[in-house]
Design a protein around this nucleic acid. Structure first.
Lengths: 315, 315
DNA sequence: GTGAAAGCGCTAACAA
DNA sequence: TTGTTAGCGCTTTCAC
C-alpha cells in the first residue's frame, strides 16, 4: 500500500520537493506556487509523514507517559493534566501502563527512548531508573512522579505533610487509637505513615498500628485485625479505598459513629459517600510534569505539592 | 545532543553498518561478530531509533487511540483492554483525548494518520469520519467504538438490548412511571431510549418521559422535573450517574423505597452503593477493538456486544 | 558471512 | 523565489 509522498505532490504541482516542503513548513514561497502545491496535496490526499519529519529534529514531538496503574483515579487525573498541556503544545501523548509489573516498567521506558519521545513522565519503581537517567543524559527531559531520583525532574506530594494532616484531623475528631492500612513499602507510603506517626506523637497520642497489604484480597483480613484494637482506620493509598471501605461496611460499621475512616486521594463518589480524604492536586501535578517536559529546565527541578484535607464526616 | 547511531556501533565493532543492522534484526551473522556488535552497542549505550526503523515498514508499530472522555470509567476499561492486547503484540499506544470538543476530534485523527499508526481505535463524532475512512483506504485498520461507519470496523454495544433490559428490570421491580435522563442525541443514546420505550410498551406500561441533559449542571433541574410524575429514574449514560445520584440523594430520597434508580455502565463503587446497572463489557470491547487492529481483517467487521443487568436493589 | 551502495520520505544547506 | 544536492539513521539488495 504505497502512500502519497512529497514527491508525488511535487510532480503533480510541477515543482520540486523542496518547494513542497517549504509550503508545508510556512517557508517563503510565491503565493501562486503555494496555491498550486496545496491544490495538488489536497487532490492527492497527501498526509505528511510525521515519523520522517522527526528524524530531522532528532526526536519526535510525542510526550511519553509511563503509568503504573490506569485504574487509579489519581493517575487518571494526572494523565488529564499531562494531556491538557501536551495538546496545548501540539504534542501527542504516548501512553504505557505497566499494571504494576516491574519487568514491564524498564521495557516501557526503553520503548519510549527508542521512539525518541520529546520527554517522559513516569511513575515506576527503581528498576527503570537507570534507563531514565540515561535518557536524561541524552537530552530527553524525564519527570518522575511521586518519587525523586538524582538527576531527574520530579513532581511529588509532600507525603509527610499528608501524614501530619491525617494525624491532625484524627486528633480533632477525638480518635485515640489509629489503625493504618498501607499499600507498600515504597517511599511515598513510608513517608505518609511516618508523618502520621509524628503528628500523633506531637499530640501525645498513642502510636498507630500498621498493616501492610499486598493486594485487595488481603484488605479484609487486615481491617479485621486492626478493628480489634482501634477506633479509626486510615488508608494511606487511594488504590485500596474501595476495598477498605467495603471491609468496614461489610461488618455493619457506620462512619463516623462506629468507626472513623480517613483515606488518601479524592474521587468522584467521595462526596456522595461522605468520605473524608487527604487529597492530592493530581490534575495540577500532571500539568506541572508536562510543563517540565515542554520547558526543559536545565537543572533538575523538584516540585513538591501540598495535600489538602477534605473533611466529609467519615472520621 | 548527538545520539549514538548504528554507524558509531559499526565503527566501534570494526564492522559495517549492514552487519550491525543484521545483528539487531536476527539476521545471519557469525556468532563472534554478533558478540562484538552487542558489546559495542552495550558499551556505547546504543538505543535503536524506532522512528527511522518504521520508515521502512511504511508505518509505525504504534496503535492510535482517540477517546472522547478520559474521565469516564467506560473508556478507562476500554483503554485497559486495548493496552493489554497492544502490549502483547509489542505495540505502544498513542492516546489522545478530545474532551468532548468536536474540533479536536478530526485534528487528533489526522495526527494519528500523520504518525502512521498501525491502526486506530476511536470514539468520535461524525466530524472525524471522512478522515478515518481515508485512513482505512490507505490501509490503516480503523475501529470505531459505539457507532458504525460504512467501511470501518466497529465494536459496539447492542444498545437497544440495553434499553430492553432496563425496561424488563423496571417492570420486574413494579415501576410504572419512568423518567429518563439522557446525555445526547447520539445514536447510542437514542437506541437505548428506543429499546426502553419498546420494552415498556411490550409490557403495556406507559411511555417514559425523557429529558435531554447537556452537561452535569443541568442534571439537578432535569431530575427535579422528572420526579414530579415518575417513580423511577433511569440514566442512559454512565457519565451522568454521579450527578443523577447526587440529585436524588440531595432531595433525601432513598432507593429503592422512595425512588427507583437504574443507570448504565458498572463502576467500582456501584457495589458499595447498591446501585443497579446495565453493564457493558468495556474491557472485552477494548480487547476486541485492538485485536481487529492487529489482525487486520479484510472486510469491515461489526462486533456487537451484549449488555448485562446487574441488579443491586436500587430499583 | 560480510561490505558497498542505493534508497525510505523528508529537510536544509547552497546555488541559481 | 526556486531547484539541486546532500544528508537524517536505518534496512536491504547485490556482489564479493
Amino acid at each position: 500500500m504505497k502512500r502519497v509522498t512529497i514527491g508525488d505532490v511535487a510532480a503533480h504541482a510541477g515543482v520540486s520537493t523542496a518547494t513542497v516542503s517549504r509550503v508545508l513548513n510556512d517557508g517563503l514561497v510565491a503565493e501562486s506556487t503555494a496555491a498550486k502545491v496545496w491544490a495538488a496535496a489536497e487532490f492527492l490526499g497527501y498526509s505528511p509523514n510525521a515519523l520522517t519529519r522527526s528524524i530531522f529534529a532528532g526526536r519526535s514531538s510525542t510526550i511519553g507517559v509511563v503509568i503504573r496503574d490506569l485504574s487509579s483515579p489519581f493517575y487518571l487525573d494526572l494523565i488529564r493534566g499531562i494531556d491538557e498541556v501536551a495538546a496545548a503544545s501540539d504534542s501527542p501523548v504516548m501512553l504505557a501502563s505497566t499494571y504494576r509489573r516491574a519487568e514491564r516498567e524498564a521495557a516501557q521506558v526503553r520503548a519510549m527512548d527508542q521512539h525518541r519521545v520529546r520527554g517522559l513522565v513516569m511513575t515506576a519503581d527503581e528498576t527503570a531508573d537507570s534507563h531514565a537517567r540515561q535518557m536524561a543524559e541524552n537530552g530527553t527531559p524525564c519527570v518522575i512522579v511521586a518519587r525523586t531520583v538524582p538527576g531527574l525532574h520530579s513532581v511529588s506530594l509532600d507525603d509527610a505533610a499528608a501524614g501530619r494532616l491525617m494525624a491532625a484531623h484524627l486528633a480533632d475528631c477525638g480518635r485515640a487509637r489509629v489503625g493504618i492500612v498501607s499499600g507498600s513499602h515504597r517511599p511515598t507510603q513510608v513517608k505518609r505513615v511516618d508523618g502520621l506517626r509524628q503528628g500523633l506523637s506531637e499530640r501525645d497520642l498513642p502510636q498507630p498500628e500498621e498493616v501492610l497489604v499486598g493486594n485487595e484480597n488481603e484488605v479484609d483480613g487486615a481491617v479485621g485485625s486492626l478493628l480489634q484494637r482501634n477506633d479509626a482506620i486510615v488508608c494511606t493509598t487511594g488504590r485500596l479505598t474501595v476495598a477498605v471501605h467495603a471491609a468496614l461496611t461489610a461488618r455493619g460499621l457506620r462512619m463516623p459513629d462506629d468507626i472513623g475512616f480517613l483515606t488518601m486521594d479524592d474521587f468522584a463518589w467521595a462526596g456522595t459517600l461522605g468520605i473524608s480524604v487527604v487529597a492530592q492536586p493530581s490534575y495540577e501535578m500532571g500539568r506541572r510534569a508536562a510543563e517540565l517536559v515542554v520547558e526543559e529546565p536545565s537543572a533538575p527541578a523538584r516540585i513538591v505539592f501540598q495535600p489538602t484535607l477534605i473533611a466529609r464526616g467519615s472520621c
